[in-house]
Design a protein around this nucleic acid. Sequence first.
DNA 1: TAGAAATCCTCACAATCATGAGGATTTCAC
DNA 2: GTGAAATCCTCATGATTGTGAGGATTTCTA
Lengths: 88, 88
Amino acid sequence: MQIPVKSADAVGKIVRASRKAQNIRQDDAAGSIGVSENFLGKIERGGESVQWGKLFQVLDGLGIRVVLDVPESVADHISQQHKSQAKS
Amino acid sequence: MQIPVKSADAVGKIVRASRKAQNIRQDDAAGSIGVSENFLGKIERGGESVQWGKLFQVLDGLGIRVVLDVPESVADHISQQHKSQAKS
DNA sequence: TAGAAATCCTCACAATCATGAGGATTTCAC
DNA sequence: GTGAAATCCTCATGATTGTGAGGATTTCTA
């Protein structure tokens, strides 16, 4: 199921729900993902001042996929970037 | 169009493509979003060690929507969290 | 309700980050 | 190819973050 993220802090609820759906404790999840329990707790409580790379690590570790929704015109630009790179 | 984010650094290309699709310069976009040009440049180059809250600000400012994809079981847990909160 | 378990919170600390300035490098229209 | 414009990179600085430890508080099962 796809859940739109309306605000930076909204990720927390989804992370916690994911963890609980898998019946994992915070400290166990943190351990297997490779972050501190403190950090995972902060994310779940809606912390915004967390490092994106580590947040992504947590999302990935809990099987949460991240999707960015953009207009078609943007997708075109991504293709162009790829093409211009291939030229050089 | 929905673009799956496979790695934390993949966000950068999408951010840059979005900005260019709107024909905005880096410093202008940064200014109107409320972050430094340096920061926006870092994101676009794939920086992972950026603050999630500020990254979300940039995504929002460029009209990029964030979506999290989870199993239905997780969605159920989110509803439960909401219900248990309503009880107390 | 009791109490064990889970989570939250504070602390200290070393590492790191966002900013703004300024110069180096790259891009791209002509 | 040229050169103006855009972007990248480094620096210094004050602010901030992730970690681990330990205690406070909350949760939830029996």
